[in-house]
Deep mutational scan, measured.
Amino acid sequence: MDVFMKGLSKAKEGVVAAAEKTKQGVAEAAGKTKEGVLYVGSKTKEGVVHGVATVAEKTKEQVTNVGGAVVTGVTAVAQKTVEGAGSIAAATGFVKKDQLGKNEEGAPQEGILEDMPVDPDNEAYEMPSEEGYQDYEPEA
């Protein structure tokens, strides 16, 4: 019985440690998101679009440190934060509304985080759909 109880105690310690790591990862992701939003706020009209992409990228980098179902929630929060940063930029006159959601080359930025393969159960990952990809044929 002692062996059984000791095993359960060790398992509990492992769960607590994993929860603490997840909590730490979420806190880091939130900190990076805040950094990115402050970065966007300090940019001029020309830099705002690039700044919004930076927020998304920093958040995406930190999301990889967070495991399990938390990833889905962090990704949703990050996307809403990026959308909010863009709205703030438009409201303050840093950028025109028609410039939001495009990178410096004018290509749409939507789907940055949505296409990231995420499995809350950590069982399997699927690649994003290939609808947006084109076949590449090298020139002879």
Rank of each mutant, 00 (worst) to 15 (best):
E61C: 10
M1E: 00
A76F: 03
A107R: 12
G14D: 06
V82S: 04
E20P: 00
T72I: 14
E46G: 07
A30W: 09
A19K: 12
G47P: 02
D98C: 12
K23A: 09
S129T: 11
T44C: 04
K10F: 00
G47L: 09
V77H: 03
A11D: 00
G36N: 13
K10V: 05
D119Y: 11
K45G: 08
E123T: 15
I88R: 03
K6I: 07
Y133T: 08
Q79L: 06
K43G: 01
A91I: 12
S87R: 08
E126R: 03
G25C: 15
A69H: 08
A30R: 04
V77M: 14
E57G: 09
T22K: 00
A76W: 03
E110L: 01
E137H: 03
A107V: 04
V82R: 07
V48Q: 00
V40W: 00
T64R: 13
H50D: 03
M5S: 04
G106S: 08
V70T: 03
L113W: 01
N122R: 13
V66C: 07
T81Y: 07
V77L: 08
I112H: 12
A124F: 09
P128I: 07
D98G: 13
M127F: 08
G67R: 03
G106K: 09
D98P: 08
N65I: 07
A76V: 10
L113K: 13
E28G: 09
P138A: 10
P128D: 04
Y133S: 04
K97E: 13
E20L: 01
K10A: 10
A124S: 14
E131R: 04
G31V: 06
E130W: 07
T33S: 08
Y125R: 04
A53W: 04
K12I: 15
T54V: 14
V49S: 07
A19F: 15
P108S: 11
T59H: 02
Q109E: 14
G31L: 15
K80H: 09
V16M: 09
A27L: 13
T81S: 03
Q109Y: 11
V74C: 08
V71I: 03
A11E: 00
I112D: 11
G93E: 05
F94K: 01
E105N: 14
S9Q: 07
V118P: 05
A91M: 11
K32Q: 05
K21S: 08
G41E: 01
Y133W: 13
L100E: 15
T22D: 03
A124E: 13
P108T: 06
S129D: 05
T33L: 13
P138K: 11
G111V: 07
K23V: 11
V16N: 08
Y125A: 08
V48R: 01
K32N: 03
K34L: 04
I112E: 10
Q99F: 09
S9K: 13
T64S: 06
E105P: 11
K96S: 09
E126L: 05
K6L: 05
Q24E: 09
K97V: 10
P120Y: 09
K96R: 06
Q79E: 10
H50C: 10
G41L: 09
G31S: 15
G86A: 13
V77I: 08
E131L: 07
Q99D: 10
K80S: 01
G36V: 13
Q62C: 11
E13G: 07
G51M: 02
P108D: 08
N103M: 09
Q79H: 05
